[in-house]
Computed example of a mutant assay.
Amino acid sequence: MKRAEQVTFGGSGLDRAGLLRSDADKLAQAYRDPSALCALLWRGKLLVRGEALDRLALLPMNNKVLEQGPGGVVETPVFLGKTDEGAPLFAMDISDWSAEGLDMSGVGDFVDRSEQQHPDLPEGYVFAELRRIMTRLSPRDAELAASAKAVIGWHETHRFCARCGARSEMSQGGWQRSCPACGGQHFPRTDPVVIMLITHGNSVLMGRSPGWPEGMYSLLAGFVEPGETLEAAVRREVMEEAGVPVGEVRYLASQPWPFPASLMFGCAGEALSRDIHIDPVEIEDAMWITRTEMMQAFAGEHPKLLPARKGAIAHFLLQHWLADTLD
């Protein structure tokens, strides 16, 4: 697909400077570099700035908050790479900050619209949920935000060695955990997920999961199993969830999805039948939507269907399906 990398989190050509990760001395030099900058996370939320919260807030390493050191799920800052000008980039977590007295009502909700201002940071620098502001960020800020959120989230859930159970330690600039007890080495996980634009004639198959907001539907999706191709996963997931057999399948585009650590493989598939037989354990409902109805949904005028979430690859694929630009 010619426009594949235009998807949110689609990549910005970030220099990840992977060779530096194994050089402790050079990493220490990078951390002390006066030009070094750091993204800040708090309970999974990114520090952003700007009237529209459309810029990732990158702090100098001598900032008061950063000088206090990590206060959360990582022991040391994670090395993200370098700016186009060569400045080192890091990410740090301060989830131990209590945010006492601030609005916490939305934290953990499906849609978190709350913002938290740290007392030691400039006015207008707030922690915001990435889902809410992801489409406002530049491609570079989006890539940095997705990388920081995903790798720090991995550290949060992988503090102990999967081989022997001993507490592991950060290494390779935060891109590995090493076990001092058994020598095991563990790397950030990425879960492959297929998300399917399944069409039959002029209609597309949409479904909804239990607990989603009223009117929210999306393309069907599911995890790829070990030993399975993307094409086989598409056919299996659509059959399991909606009972619809699928013929030809082709790959379209991918999207890193740091909620918490998926790589979405967008695929197109041709349904061999319009008959739907949902698995109520998998999904709550499924239906065929015509192009005209989808255009109504995108315009906010459909009586039942809300527009797909902007920034998600489902919205991206549906948008290009409507515009007939899936080539």
Score class of each variant (00 low, 15 high):
residue 43 R to F: 03
residue 3 R to H: 14
residue 202 N to M: 12
residue 244 V to A: 04
residue 147 S to M: 08
residue 271 A to P: 05
residue 114 S to V: 11
residue 308 A to G: 05
residue 31 Y to Q: 08
residue 137 L to G: 01
residue 297 A to L: 11
residue 78 V to H: 02
residue 279 D to P: 05
residue 292 T to C: 11
residue 180 P to R: 04
residue 209 S to A: 12
residue 26 K to P: 10
residue 114 S to M: 09
residue 44 G to S: 08
residue 202 N to Y: 10
residue 305 L to V: 13
residue 186 H to E: 13
residue 302 H to M: 08
residue 172 Q to S: 02
residue 24 A to H: 13
residue 73 V to P: 08
residue 232 A to Y: 10
residue 297 A to W: 05
residue 35 S to P: 10
residue 171 S to T: 08
residue 267 C to V: 08
residue 121 L to E: 00
residue 113 R to Y: 14
residue 40 L to W: 01
residue 149 K to R: 15
residue 35 S to M: 14
residue 256 P to T: 05
residue 40 L to P: 00
residue 95 S to K: 09
residue 67 E to V: 14
residue 318 L to P: 08
residue 65 V to M: 06
residue 148 A to L: 04
residue 104 M to D: 10
residue 72 G to R: 12
residue 91 A to E: 03
residue 125 Y to M: 10
residue 221 A to Q: 07
residue 120 D to Q: 15
residue 304 K to N: 11
residue 129 E to D: 12
residue 272 L to H: 12
residue 231 E to F: 06
residue 46 L to K: 07
residue 291 R to E: 13
residue 193 V to L: 11
residue 79 F to I: 02
residue 247 G to V: 07
residue 40 L to E: 10
residue 86 G to D: 07
residue 284 E to D: 11
residue 90 F to W: 00
residue 222 G to C: 03
residue 161 C to H: 01
residue 128 A to H: 11
residue 210 P to F: 10
residue 136 R to Y: 12
residue 169 E to G: 03
residue 256 P to R: 02
residue 235 R to V: 05
residue 27 L to E: 12
residue 47 L to Q: 05
residue 122 P to S: 13
residue 244 V to P: 00
residue 51 E to G: 13
residue 163 R to S: 15
residue 316 F to Y: 06
residue 30 A to N: 06
residue 59 L to N: 00
residue 88 P to Y: 03
residue 278 I to C: 04
residue 304 K to G: 07
residue 141 D to Y: 04
residue 132 R to Y: 14
residue 293 E to P: 08
residue 198 I to A: 07
residue 181 A to L: 01
residue 93 D to M: 03
residue 300 G to H: 07
residue 165 G to T: 08
residue 127 F to I: 02
residue 148 A to T: 06
residue 246 V to S: 01
residue 243 G to N: 05
residue 191 D to Y: 10
residue 121 L to H: 09
residue 157 T to E: 10
residue 21 R to P: 03
residue 74 V to Q: 03
residue 204 V to H: 02
residue 234 V to W: 04
residue 189 R to P: 00
residue 272 L to G: 13
residue 101 G to Q: 04
residue 99 A to I: 05
residue 163 R to Q: 15
residue 4 A to K: 11
residue 232 A to L: 09
residue 7 V to Q: 02
residue 175 W to I: 03
residue 300 G to W: 01
residue 80 L to D: 06
residue 305 L to I: 15
residue 155 H to Y: 03
residue 300 G to M: 06
residue 190 T to K: 03
residue 300 G to V: 09
residue 254 S to R: 11
residue 312 A to N: 15
residue 192 P to W: 05
residue 257 W to G: 14
residue 9 F to G: 01
residue 277 H to F: 14
residue 221 A to K: 08
residue 203 S to E: 12
residue 165 G to F: 09
residue 65 V to Y: 05
residue 48 V to D: 05
residue 73 V to T: 09
residue 208 R to T: 10
residue 25 D to L: 12
